[in-house]
């Protein structure tokens, strides 16, 4: 009993002041993921990596848009999105004050426009992603001719690329040789 009283006296006030004063959190605390939409190329790396499916990406071909979304109510705050993002567009912040009365307030979205395919004109990939990759090609391509070829590739939709590849293969000498040998 004496030991207990001594311990209680020694301890004194143990309680934090929160919410009347801010509470201290660790430097790299994993709180609310903050999305900088301006920095996002809508590449979907985060939505693939998210173990809880809190991040989503929906394409509306008719409107020519792709909508990125985060549901803070489903988020497990693991930080995988931050880890895989190629443009540092999402980062976990120390903010933990997320409680809401209206469930819809837990969702944040960002709408991105799709770029049209240079071959068929149908929207296929986010405009910002195409622009970003094009800029990378310009920075890394060994020659101007090569850069031009790759720029074309990036701006072409997968369906057109496939059709193009098939045309090339059908026209190639190897295939013709194979066909005659058969």
């Amino acid at each position: 009993m004496f030991k207990l009283l001594k311990e209680v006296l020694r301890t004194g006030e143990a309680t934090v002041k929160y919410p009347f004063a801010p509470v201290e959190v660790a430097k790299d605390f994993r709180g609310k993921p903050e999305h900088q939409a301006a920095n996002c190329i809508a590449c979907a790396a985060c939505t693939v990596a998210c173990p809880a499916n809190a991040l989503g990406m929906e394409t509306d071909a008719g409107a020519g848009t792709r909508t990125w979304s985060i549901n803070y109510g489903r988020c497990v705050f693991c930080g995988r999105c931050e880890e895989v993002c190629p443009t540092d567009a999402i980062r976990l912040t120390p903010d933990f004050e997320l409680a809401v009365a209206v469930k819809a307030d837990l969702v944040r979205t960002a709408v991105f426009r799709l770029a049209p395919c240079v071959a068929c004109g149908k929207p296929f990939a986010p405009e910002k992603e195409v622009a970003y990759v094009t800029a990378l090609i310009e920075a890394t391509a060994p020659s101007e001719a090569d850069a031009e070829r790759r720029r074309q590739l990036v701006a072409t939709c997968p369906a057109c690329k496939r059709a193009h590849d098939l045309g090339q293969i059908a026209g190639s000498r190897v295939v013709r040789a194979m066909e005659t040998s058969r």
């Binding site: 959190v25 660790a26 430097k27 790299d28 605390f29 994993r30 497990v76 705050f77 693991c78 930080g79 976990l92």
Partner: peptide
């Protein structure tokens, strides 16, 4: 506090 400092989270270290 130790867990939060080392992992960024008090629980579910991830």
């Amino acid at each position: 506090t130790l867990a939060e400092m080392l992992t960024g989270s008090r629980k579910t270290y991830a």
